[in-house]
Structure formats: structure tokens, C-alpha cells
Nucleic acid binder design. Structure first.
Lengths: 354, 354
DNA sequence: TTGAAAGCGGTACCAG
DNA sequence: CTGGTACCGCTTTCAA
């Protein structure tokens, strides 16, 4: 089923059918009617590949993320999708699962599709890949990776600052031994995040930190927490790389009969919806995912002649959110101390601290 | 950058470059080497649109789901993606957000892309759309919608049976007034699920049920639970259409100081990972999402000449999973009764009941 | 083993 | 306002 068949049935040329399809206003309405009728009768669906080949463009933008399973990424994706649709673009997504090999093939795939723009929301990216992208001349926005460059915009969250707020808060509550739950990606050579944690802790001499990493999932957070608790380090607070792993950590603590926050405090990062709905509600750091999504779209899809991609860096400062999963360290300063009477569950009220 | 430029640089014809790209074994290795070199030097990326236009095929399958935000859908998606990659296919996904208008455009988009196969994991679908798909000659698998038909396979879960298990269990625990938390989609004309609940309840004369529906999100579940609790119906158990809304309901109950399961029992559906990690862990019904994903791929992507799509129905029977969110109705038979002493939290142990 | 050329299904420019 | 037609970039006979 193609243009020609439709044209034949409507007794017009393929050019005219094409005009109708792209609703060019020049077509006489009676002709248009005949064409529309033919299209419907034949249940004709234009071949999008042919269309973008002929047109040279694709009305599609690509979004690559490390882990769409994590609502943090998905929230950004949803915003992008919604914005893109508003402007008449489609979105194709790709998941790398934190595997660099997947990242490479996803990027190649996007270039092969000749996307009109590409957002890479991934934690790491080889320089050659960035180079490859730059050569492709596709407008690109990176979230949290790489450095500013021609045709590439960088959006980054001041992760370092967020972690400092968390660490300072825990310190002020009397915590001295912190556990850090990461995911495998933080183990990479240029792990910005791990470094941010170490640095934040290093500022305060009385603090000690121990790290464990596993998958970026509920189960991964649980396993990492388990390792942290298996040693005699006995952290009084567990700082998690994000909310998903934090919920996993909460589970492990609950299983062990360790109360949060009475025995051990827990913090997340991202402030996904779940951080509010889990128990206890997580103290976390808010990253404005919708804003990130909007910015990405603004960079990728020029609005009526606006410049689009900015060859520079946009930094977002995160807000600290206190909820119920953190509290003062217990009197003895020890970690889990079984047999204590339950403290009253604090009112589930959250507040934003700048 | 195109085939011709590569061909010129390698001093061969475009046909030969094409052969190298599709690693046809006929190319002399010295020639192949020249071509590969040229490809790399030019950082050439084949235009996928041109490729699938010329080839007539697309090595891509489409997956449409109602709500990828819900891990239930995403788990199926991931399995499909993984299986597809193993067989050399790409996957493009589309989210309908339960909006029939989005469903229509997503389907048109997939047809326009000439996908090699399409999985529709959505709760409702207009007959005209099914017709449109059938005409397109694309192999299709429906999950939970429609009836068997030429070129279309149907996979469905015996939702009815699952709900019966839930209702029977709650009844055996002494519950008589049930609340049902649905999502907006169950309000449609042919709401299989809503009907299943009503029927399951109707079998047992002593049972009463009240329904509320909101979005298929944590917040939606919370709101629906709130409506249920706002009346004087005072349900002693809340049956939720799925785990996500159930976690939302748990939150609302917690906010109100209503204990689960002592004051009110809660059940979910799907058995997503979160149902185990939330507090209290949810009694739910397990749907084998990986199995569903594998079946979908088997139907869509013929393995070495195998028949592929089956024009019939595959029914999956769900398993009941008891965890900590359900318990015997409190002595008075009333719903929430404040001021009672805390019961000991039962060991977080789950068991499978067929 | 390689090259020439005919499509694949549209788009868009140029005439009429 | 409509038709003819030269591409878009790649695959695939058919010959050489």
C-alpha cells in the first residue's frame, strides 16, 4: 500500500496525495476530499521511513537513559515526551542498563535513525563517543556527563552540594559513622558521585565512611545495605545514592529488626514520589526532574527560530528535604540496639530546607 | 555522509559497501578491509530509514503499554526488549497513559514504521483499531484485550480467578465490607476487572463492596483509598487493582493512623518487586511477567521457521501470595479503631498459595 | 568477486 | 491548483 495506489484510486498524482498528507493548503477542497476518501478506503498508512528519507529529517528525538526502571529517569523521560509531542515530535527511548556496550549501540542506533536531537541521561560516557556524536552534527544534551562542547549542551546537578547538605545534616544530628550505598556505576574510574561523598565526609574530621555498591534497584540497595551491616563498622546512618536503593536499604533494616530512624538513619536522593510513600518517608534531596526535562526539550527543539542548543553548562542546585527516615543518633552512639522501647512515630510532615 | 562517499573513498561500488555492511561473505577480504577502513575514517553511520525502505523490512518490533511508569508493564517490556535484542531486533515503545486517543496515534505510528511485530499491553481497544491492525498484516499480540483473530495472538491473565482468591481469603479472615481501589481505566464500558470484582463478591452473600477509582499511580491509589475511607462504609479490607495503587492506599492509611493489617487489610495485584519492599509487605497475586514477555516474543519473532503468531488465546493462571498486609478482621468487626495497643509485627515471611 | 542500475515510498521543485 | 520527475540512501538482482 503506497502513495501511488492512493493516487490512482483518487485519480490524482502522487504529488497531490503527498500535499494532502502534509495538509498543504493549496489543494482544492473537492480534490482533497477525493484523496481523503481513497486514503480511508485503502486504510493507507504512510511509510515513515520513506518520508524521513525523502525529507532528510525525522521529527523524532532520542532519549538514552541508564535505567528507565528508576522513576528518576522515567520522570525526565515523560516530561521530554510530553513536550516533544506538543511540538509535533516523536520520542524513541533506549535503556543502557549502565552497560557501556549498550550505550555505544544505542548511540549508533540513534545516529542511524537520524534523530533531530538526542538526550543522554547517563552517568558515564567515553570521550570517543562524545566525539562521534559531535561529528554527527546532531544536537545533543547531556545530563551529568562530559564537558561543554560545540553543538552539545550540558545539564548537571550539583550532586556534590546535595551530598554535603545530607552529610552536614547527619553530622549535626550526632552521626559519626556513615555507610554509603551506591550502585555499580559509581565504581567507574571517574565516579563523580563517589568522590563527592568522600569529599563531603573528608571536610569533617570526626566522620568516618564505608561504602558498598550493588545494582540500581530495590534489591541492589538491600544487598548493599546488607554488606554495610555485615561488618563491625556499625554505621548509625546510611546515605544512599538515590531513593530506589534507599527503599531497598529500608527493607534490609526492617528485616533485621533495626528501627529507622531510632537505631539507624537513612537518606535517599532524587525525591521520587516513592520516597514519600515508603515507610518511613525518606529524607532526601530534591532534583527538579520536570525542569530538567523542559530544559532538555528547549535545547533540542528550537521554538520558532530560537537558537536551541547552547554550547554551555546549566547547573541545577538541589534542595534538601527532611522527612522521617533521619533522626538523632541514639544516646550510646551505637548502631542497632535491640530491645529498646519504640519511640513515637514522628508526624509524617516534610519540610524543604534550601 | 552516505554509501556513495564511502564507496568512492574505498574505490569500490556502493553495492560492495552494502555487502560489507551486511557482512556478506562474498567480499574479498582485502576489499573488505579497504571498505572498513573508509567507513571508520569517515565515521559513517548507515541511514536506517533508507535501509528499511530498501529492504522492505525493519528489524524492529513495537510495544505499546498503558502505563510504563507502573513496573508491571515495564517488567514485561524489559523481557521483550532483551529477547528481541538476542534475536537482532530493536524495540520501540509507546506509552498511552490510558488515553484511547494516544493509543490510536501510537498504533498508527507503529504501522507507519512498518514494525515487524507489535505487542499491545493495554486494557482496552476499540474494535475498529483491531480491524485496522488486522488489515496492516503486522503480527500482533494483545495482552488482556480483544478476542482471537487472524494474525493476532491473545494472552490473558485469569484476573477473575485471581480476584476470587483474594476475596475468598479475606472472607475467610472474617472480612465482610470490602473497598475496591481501581484506576480510571476500569470505569470503561467493558471493564473486565471491575466486573470480576463484583462477580467475585456476589458469590458470597455476606459480602459488601464499595468502589473508588483514580489514576494508576501511588498518588491515585492514595486518593481512591481516601474516598473509600471518607464515607461511613468503614471497609475492613481494601482490595486494590494492582500493587502500585495498593502502596498508595497503604500511605493514606498510615497518614490516618489506621494500622495495617490490624485495623484494615490491604491487597495488591501483580506482585511487582515493590510489593515485597513496601511496608507492610503486600498480600498480592503474582502475574509471571517474564513469562508473558517471553511468550510475546515467541509469537512475534519466528525462531528458525517456526510458525510464530498463533491465532488463539493463551490464558495464564495467577498465584496468590500472602504477606503481611492482610490479617483477621478485628474483634468488633469495625474498621479503624484508634487507641488499641500495637500488635507485634508478624515475621515478614511470604508464602505462595496456588 | 565486483559493478551498474532498478527500485523502495515519499518529498519538493518546476512547469503548466 | 495539479502533474511530472529528480532525488533521498540503501538493497538487490543481473551481468560481467
Amino acid at each position: 500500500m503506497n502513495l501511488e495506489q492512493v493516487a490512482r484510486r483518487a485519480r490524482v498524482s502522487t504529488a497531490t496525495v503527498s500535499r494532502v498528507l502534509n495538509n498543504a493548503s493549496v489543494v482544492k477542497s473537492s480534490t482533497r476530499a477525493r484523496v481523503v476518501k481513497a486514503i480511508e478506503e485503502l486504510k493507507y498508512h504512510p511509510n515513515l521511513h520513506a518520508r524521513s528519507l525523502a525529507g532528510g529529517k525525522s521529527r523524532t528525538i532520542g532519549v538514552i537513559a541508564s535505567n528507565m526502571e528508576n522513576p528518576f529517569f522515567f520522570d525526565i523521560y515523560k516530561t521530554i515526551e510530553s513536550d516533544a509531542h506538543d511540538r509535533g515530535y516523536e520520542v524513541v527511548m533506549a535503556n543502557t542498563d549502565y552497560r557501556s556496550e549498550q550505550l555505544v549501540s544505542s548511540i549508533r542506533l540513534m545516529i542511524g535513525r537520524r534523530v533531530a536531537g538526542l538526550a543522554a541521561i547517563v552517568s558515564e560516557m567515553a570521550p570517543e563517543l562524545i566525539e562521534e556524536l559531535a561529528e554527527s552534527r546532531i544536537p545533543v544534551v547531556f545530563y551529568d556527563v562530559g564537558t561543554p562542547r560545540r553543538n552539545i549542551t550540558n545539564i548537571r546537578v550539583n550532586y556534590r552540594r546535595g551530598i554535603e547538605k545530607v552529610v552536614d545534616y547527619l553530622h549535626s544530628l550526632g552521626h559519626r559513622r556513615l555507610g554509603f550505598v551506591g550502585h555499580h556505576a559509581i565504581l567507574g574510574p571517574i565516579n563523580e558521585r563517589m568522590k563527592a561523598v568522600m569529599d563531603a565526609v573528608a571536610r569533617i574530621p570526626s566522620l568516618e565512611v564505608r561504602t558498598a555498591a550493588d545494582a540500581d534497584t530495590l534489591e541492589g540497595g538491600r544487598q548493599a545495605a546488607r554488606s554495610l551491616l555485615a561488618t563491625d563498622f556499625a554505621p548509625t546512618a546510611i546515605v544512599c545514592v538515590n531513593d530506589v536503593t534507599a527503599v531497598g536499604a529500608l527493607y534490609e533494616l526492617r528485616e533485621r529488626g533495626i528501627r529507622v530512624p531510632q537505631d539507624v538513619s537513612v537518606t535517599g536522593f532524587d525525591n521520587i514520589k516513592l520516597s514519600e510513600f515508603c515507610y518511613p518517608a525518606l529524607t532526601t534531596v530534591h532534583i527538579p526532574r520536570e525542569r530538567v526535562g523542559h530544559i532538555i526539550c528547549d535545547c533540542l527543539l528550537p521554538r520558532s527560530g530560537k537558537p536551541a542548543v547552547i554550547d554551555s553548562e546549566i547547573v541545577i542546585d538541589p534542595e534538601f528535604v527532611v522527612r522521617d527516615s533521619t533522626g538523632p543518633v541514639s544516646p550510646s552512639g551505637a548502631g542497632h540496639r535491640p530491645g529498646q522501647p519504640d519511640a513515637v512515630h514522628p508526624a509524617a510532615q516534610s519540610q524543604l530546607l534550601s
